[in-house]
Write a protein that binds this DNA or RNA. Structure first.
Lengths: 230, 230
DNA sequence: GCACATCTCCACCTTTTGGGGGAGGCCAGA
DNA sequence: TCTGGCCTCCCCCAAAAGGTGGAGATGTGC
């Protein structure tokens, strides 16, 4: 039995969703909340599997509440069910989607979703999947493809470099000094300087700082690969 | 009427999908293809609205074919319908998803999808949305949140900087030299040096190259914002 | 064999960078 | 009022970076 909690500041909306969900034999609405604060308390008390969360609410909005609930759920740890959140909203501005996914939401659907689709979304998310409104999925894909696709034209310039020069460029993009690069590649500092000069000239760059920018822009380096512990 | 093309190297699979789709009053399977090469030709000839594309195929795989079809569709331009592709596969390794989205696919679903869901996916994608298998959506979200989330802890370090120092850091991340930064901010070169020294020390960095890395990692700079024309 | 590219290193030089000071002006909060 | 942070700029200096030109040792392909 899927234990669901519905969070929305409008009681009528809550009742509507609860009705639809309780109509399913394997779904049970075990709690309701009207504000973010209430949601956090109720989540702790009732330990639902799924939370349907509105964004606009008094006291604390749904995104903030989502972040806090999922955060404590993680730190708590001992839960058999990690509890997953589906954001339910009337609008779909990018910023909301963005923050919702950051907060750890597993779904983001619009309130005009057909009842069957809502039920399906709940089951999908409970099953470990994620469910986004089609338009949102579309935008997520676009952004994803864009981030990954920018490298295409620049990657051609990359091919003009020799293997060694690419290795040096990678090291530069890791924030290494010439001396550190020499050590890492088991070559002399003078050789590193040769490679650096060569790759800068081939790529039309002026200094290693620009080389770092180039490495990120063309995909040779990517955000998240590196620990900035230097 | 939605004009659909089915691409799969197994004739039986094609017939199966065609049967399901032709059963819908508003959907018509107008073409079939058994290889990537055939798919490209058939797409040009029949101009379908939606293509259901298998990945594993002889001669040319579905991802390559997808990329080519969407590329020529873009360059062709004059099409009323841009033609959208749904990848249909038995497996879902990350690499495939990745390349599929890069190639421009609007959907990525597994072949064990229920018939109704497939029909819904076709309609959704034809409507401008996108449809991914729940697990894939989940992973896409994770990656997205990860990319965006890395900034959190680092962004705190950012807050230790003064406004001016952040501006200088942004300029550094744009590949500017101290002299160029001075010009851009209407201050003297000496002042720039002061700010640079200060921000490097505050962030625990050694040189401007590391500062560029930091800017990208914490989200101050992002791939795609910059034209690497230097 | 010869041409060609790559990788390795050297020396010499100029420019840039980064660190350590110090100093004046400005403004907000105690 | 005075303190402290911020922005501005200066000096001097050492280290790092970048450019130029040259050199020997490998290959690989014609």
């Amino acid at each position: 039995m899927l234990r669901v909690m519905v969070v929305d500041d409008q009681a009528l909306v809550r009742r509507g969703f609860a009705l639809v969900l309780n109509n399913e034999p394997d779904i049970e609405v075990v709690a309701e909340a009207g504000t973010g604060i209430e949601a956090i308390e109720a989540a702790r008390e009732h330990q639902p599997d799924i939370i349907l969360m509105d964004i606009r609410m008094p006291e604390m909005d749904g995104l903030e509440a989502t972040a806090r609930i999922l955060q404590t759920a993680e730190s708590g740890g001992a839960d058999g069910t990690p509890c997953r959140v589906i954001i339910l909203t009337t609008f779909d501005p990018d910023e909301y989607v963005f923050r919702a996914l950051q907060a750890g939401a597993s779904g983001f659907v619009l309130k005009d979703i057909p009842p069957e689709a809502l039920v399906e979304a709940v089951r999908t998310v409970a099953d470990g999947g994620a469910m986004l409104a089609p338009g949102i999925t579309q935008r997520l894909i676009s952004q994803f493809a864009q981030k990954m696709g920018t490298g295409r034209n620049l990657a051609e310039r990359l091919e003009r470099l020799t293997t060694r020069e690419r290795e040096v460029l990678e090291a530069i993009a890791a924030g290494k000094s010439n001396a550190e690069i020499a050590e890492a590649l088991f070559i002399g500092p003078a050789t590193v300087k040769t490679h650096v000069s060569s790759l800068l000239s081939k790529l039309g760059l002026r200094d290693r700082a620009q080389a770092v920018v180039f490495a990120y822009e063309c995909g040779l380096a990517a955000v998240g690969e590196r620990d900035v512990g230097f």
